[in-house]
Amino acid sequence: MTAEGEALTGGMVNAGAVFRRGALVERPAPRNARALHAYLHALKEHGFDAAPTPVGLTGDGREQLTFIPGEVALPPFPDWAMTKAALASVGSLLRRLHEAGAAIEVDTRVEWPRDLADPEGGTVLCHNDVCPDNVVFRDGRAAALIDFDLAAPGRPLWDVAMTARYWVPMADPATAADLHPAGLDAPARLRVLADGYGLPPRDRAELPGVIEQATEVCRAFVARRVADGDSAYLQALAERGGWERWDRVQTWLADHRTTFTAALLN
């Protein structure tokens, strides 16, 4: 415990700047904090209790939120976080988020972040960053989502695609093995996620293509960070195979599109 509180690890955007003080978490506030806090309060009003509750904003540009107890899987991701039961529970939790969010009118006057947003837009506020670092587990099941900084309007299917990228994961075996346990069956796991979410047939047919679209958006996001000289992204790019890795992932996704579609629909 430091003078600022207990430092919380995980994620790249706010690395080293998130602290816990007892029942509160204090972190840098996003530019749209007031609108985001209003959304998080509205989620609670519509029955979704699996997100932090905003407490307030400080005078020095930070936000305070309730701390959610549990386990968060950090890379390299442990076996317990990559079980089929854990994966299905992530899908179920995401569905609950979208069902509650569908009843909340998104404020279109707000400048929601475009970093990982659905380029086609939408009427539901998507989380956009449901990676293992941002899911709190209890008893082996996904219990809550944290870090809504990149939330923006989009299609629920876009959020499923983004989540699949991180949790299946949707990457060639060599790339997946960098952070995930070896030998994960991507087509089977994509089906588990879709089943856990309750994805309808039409969306299942579209999901592989949307995952490819989401991967392009993620690559562009990384490219912008690298161009801006962000040291965390420069280091991660260098350590994980550079742009050749992204080329390999995107080629692998396109080559296996039919396999993924069959796994989702059959």
Rank of each mutant, 00 (worst) to 15 (best):
W252F: 06
P75Q: 07
K44P: 09
L116A: 10
G5L: 05
N32F: 05
T9K: 12
G16M: 04
G47M: 13
D60C: 11
T2C: 12
V124C: 06
F221K: 07
E244H: 05
D139G: 10
I211A: 03
T259M: 14
C126P: 11
L199S: 02
L199Y: 01
A188F: 09
G10L: 09
A220M: 12
P75V: 06
A3D: 15
R224L: 14
I146G: 00
P208G: 06
G183H: 08
P28K: 06
G241M: 03
W246F: 11
W167M: 00
V168K: 01
L40H: 03
Q250F: 05
I211M: 04
L57K: 03
A144Y: 02
R219A: 11
A152L: 14
D147V: 05
A177N: 11
L74F: 10
L24K: 12
A81E: 01
A238Y: 01
A188W: 08
I211V: 13
T215E: 12
L179K: 09
A88Q: 08
G196C: 03
W158P: 01
A194W: 01
P52K: 08
A174N: 09
L94R: 07
P187R: 10
D228T: 15
S92N: 14
V25W: 00
L184E: 04
D133T: 06
Q213A: 15
A73Y: 04
A86I: 00
V160E: 00
W158D: 03
G70E: 02
E212L: 13
L74D: 10
R219C: 05
A254S: 11
F19V: 09
Y233F: 11
V217T: 10
G10P: 04
A223S: 12
D107L: 04
L190P: 06
S231D: 14
D133I: 06
L179W: 10
L57W: 04
A102G: 15
W112A: 05
V72Y: 02
R21S: 07
F67C: 09
L87T: 02
A188V: 05
Y197Q: 04
V136I: 12
N134Q: 03
A35K: 01
W246E: 03
A50I: 07
L97M: 13
T258D: 15
A85G: 13
A238T: 09
M1R: 14
E26S: 04
R248V: 10
R245V: 05
L184K: 07
L57R: 05
D49M: 14
D255I: 06
A50M: 07
V72S: 01
A143T: 06
H41Y: 14
A50L: 07
A205H: 14
A23S: 13
A164W: 02
A73I: 04
W167E: 00
G196A: 04
K84P: 10
A214W: 09
R165F: 06
P52F: 06
E99H: 14
I104R: 02
T9D: 12
G47R: 15
G10N: 07
R114S: 15
G140V: 07
T123D: 10
V90M: 00
D79P: 03
F48N: 05
T2G: 12
T83W: 00
R21W: 09
A186D: 10
